[in-house]
Amino acid sequence: MASALDRFWMPTTPALRLGTVRALVGAFALVYLLIRAPHLFSYALDDVDRFQPVGLATLAPSPTLPLVYQGLVALTLALAVPFFLGWKHRVLAPLFAGLLLWVLTYSNSWGKILHTDNALTFHVLILALAPAADALSLDARHRPTPPASGRYGWPLKLMGAVVVAVYLLAGIAKLRNGGFEFLGGETLRNFVAFGNVRKIELGSHHSPLGAWLSGYPAPFVALAGFSLLAELVAPLALFHRRFGVWWSVAIWGFHLGVLALMAIGFFYQLTFVAFLPFLRAERIWERRPFRRLGQRLGVAPRGDGAAQPEPVAA
């Protein structure tokens, strides 16, 4: 029994797979934080009346000093670089994960909680506490690649479980709060129209497609059924590899629909980085346009490509 559970939760996995996921999640986090930096810095506020702490921020009785908060944001940005490169991972990665959690929690403590960063935050926390820099990292330079092991399997399984949980919880919330009425499509149609009106009336960009489609109730019946089904079957993605891949594609399509109809971008999902735990991520080094880079890093096959990837760390 314990052995079966071990094989399920800690499947023997190449170190390069986990290293590749760390590098790609790290690259996403670095770029995302750089783009979001003005937004994050804008919460260097001392307005006690507006401060509505959530999560860890509830431990703080009042807003953090603006200068201290700005320093923490800057440090988070700086530590995203070693996380991406896999440098001094055992020390710096947990620090980065903790700071990311604090900065994103704090930025959500001003009255409106955004749900776009939840999976990223958990993924970084898991990777930070996992041996995710044993391959494809500065830490692994001049070292032989360690053999495939369950050490590299459980972090990906847990990251996959985080993604699954996000959608399963969303499905449960729909059934809990509205029952199967959601399947009628009207709720979803009203949400799409509402989201677009809200954006327009707050002076932001909206989706012309969603605005146009909100005049036609029928498509929303299909969209509601698809989204609820995809959410409720999410756990199966943990038990069957191929299903996990197709489920990831379906959820990616769902987010593409949200972007097209509501102009709301869940970029961690839209870039597919969120779904890497369901893929054999190390295979990107065998494909264009990553192949040449992979060869330089020593993780992609050379020549005609028939050979196995060289078991050499970056």
């Binding site: 999560g55 994103l104 929690t105 919880l169 919330a173 729909k174 509205g178 989204s227």
Partner: peptide
């Protein structure tokens, strides 16, 4: 991690937090 992720289910449907959430978007009648 899994216990934390699912803990919001035990809370009030209108409560929300970060990064633990029960993802109430689209769940209420609109």
């Amino acid at each position: 991690v899994l216990a934390l992720l699912f803990s919001p289910v035990l809370g009030h449907p209108d409560e929300d937090s970060f990064p633990l959430s029960h993802y109430p978007m689209f769940s209420h009648e609109r």
